[in-house]
Amino acid sequence: MTKRRVNSIIFHVLIILFGFTMLYPLLWMLMASFKTNQEIFAGVNFFPENPTLGNYASGFKGVSGYSFFRFIGNSFLLAAVCIVGNIASCSMAAFAFAKLDFRLNKFLFSVMMVTLMLPFHVRLIPQYIVFNGMGWIDTFLPLAVPKFFATEGFFIFLLTQYMRGISNELLEAPRIDGCSTWQIFLYFMLPLSLPGLMTIGIFTFIWTWNDFFSQMIYISNPIRFTVSVALRMFVDTTGQSTWGALFAMSCVSLVPLFALFIGFQRYLIEGIAAGGIKG
């Protein structure tokens, strides 16, 4: 009993110490968000000398007359739509790749993998031309619509891998009971894949939240700025950068991600009863 407790204390001490090292850069940023612009660069102290909320005030004022709350709202909206799209479309494709027999299975799977391998920057120009032809520039459509068509190969691959791990016997019983393939997918496969679906949901959220390059390219009007685009506006190498506001808003923008992770990791990691999958 006591040995166990000692072990446990050692575990916590080590994990906290190590965690602190990992987090040091972020803690530095959190502290910097309470410092004035001068102190961020001049000061040597970790803690702010005269903590100020000024950075948060100026950060929330946002860009071009739009408050930062709007950008947070925009990012949330975009992320929510992308999550729905990715989960719906990627799970269908993954189910087909993982559990269904068809002649082109291997070939199409390879095609899917190859689409992951072409660098983003050369796809960008042709994609832009296509979206421009559809009149979608400066809307969220180029960022959201493709998600409904399983364009994120990473997630198909992840779910395929996940679904392959689910025993076929679990799907055989409902088939014998006369369920259609669609019903098996909907009522058995999806619930069994819940942790996998949660994973891609959370990843989608984080990636959408952090992706700056395509959002910067496709969105122009500040009214539609997302968090990642707005954050880049705080730093300009040719003028006066508001680092304090950048740090403050970076901290703010981490809050939803952090909360989401804490709130959903139960489903993400522990959502499935041990032994429930493999017989």
Partner: peptide, 24 residues
């Protein structure tokens, strides 16, 4: 319609927009 961009991003964006004759 104002489209403010930071210095580095400005040129990336303009290059892409130009490819589609969609420059500001």
């Amino acid at each position: 319609i104002c489209e403010p961009v930071s210095w580095t991003d400005y040129w990336d964006k303009l290059a892409v927009q130009t490819s589609s004759n969609n420059a500001p």
